[in-house]
Amino acid sequence: MAAELVDPRALPPPPSGAHPVRIAGRYGLLVVAAVVVAFPIYVAVAVSIQPSDRLLRFPAVLIPGDLRLDTFERAFTQARLGRYLVNSAVVSLVITAGQLVTSILAAYAFAYLRFPAKRVLFVAFIATLMVPSEVTIVANYETVQRLGWLDSYQGLTVPFLATAFGTFLLRQSFLQVPRDLRDAAALDGYGHWGFLAGVAVPLARPMIAALGVFSFLLSWNQYLWPLLITNDDAYRTVQIGLKALASTNIDQLNVIMAGTVIAALPIFALLVLFQRQLIRGLTSGAVKG
């Protein structure tokens, strides 16, 4: 599996004797593509660190001058960005931890245990993948409302505490653990829990890490559900907070961009730190693992 995004060793070298002009041409295209792709990010950062009056000066706005960082301060004071970030962190961590626990357990049952109706349950798990959350929001909104979970962490997290995708991913990893290891552990004196904790989970760690990073990314970036069930500032996640920030500071693009940059930073950090895991999560299913 090509979990390596930026390790050049995974790439073919230029053909021997490739003409320098061809190589230069490729560099040229790469630079153009990079500028186009990164442009919105560059503009966001550039706008976020300049005072409002510079934003209308084109093309000066693209070469940041008169740098100000008070935009970031204002993003925190004009909207409760700090609170939103904490909420997002809490919600994402709870969802990630919850999904890891539920899917490790379920995957273990599917991979190692014999029980009646296993196939039926397996199909039921598959079926959940075919129901996008957009489809069930009407009824789920009603449920959460009845439970009194609007504007609450429970409402933001509980519906996402299980994942069929993660269950399949981990089941696949567990199935790759040789059967002899399970037998050896049984003879060594380990029951299912001991084997799960001592052997299966450690061996599936790369996939568990990938799933964790992937789950965190998805929950951090959630939009529709938190928007629907939160009105109270105290429970808004940062994605929804950005909307609030944008609508209350419509004429202050630099403040909006400052908030946007802040909201994006944790995930950029995640990408840098856990690049390998993230890519494994994103491509599982695409390329044979």
Partner: peptide, 8 residues
Amino acid sequence: STVATSVA
């Protein structure tokens, strides 16, 4: 890099 940007 755009995988790190959320829809918002």
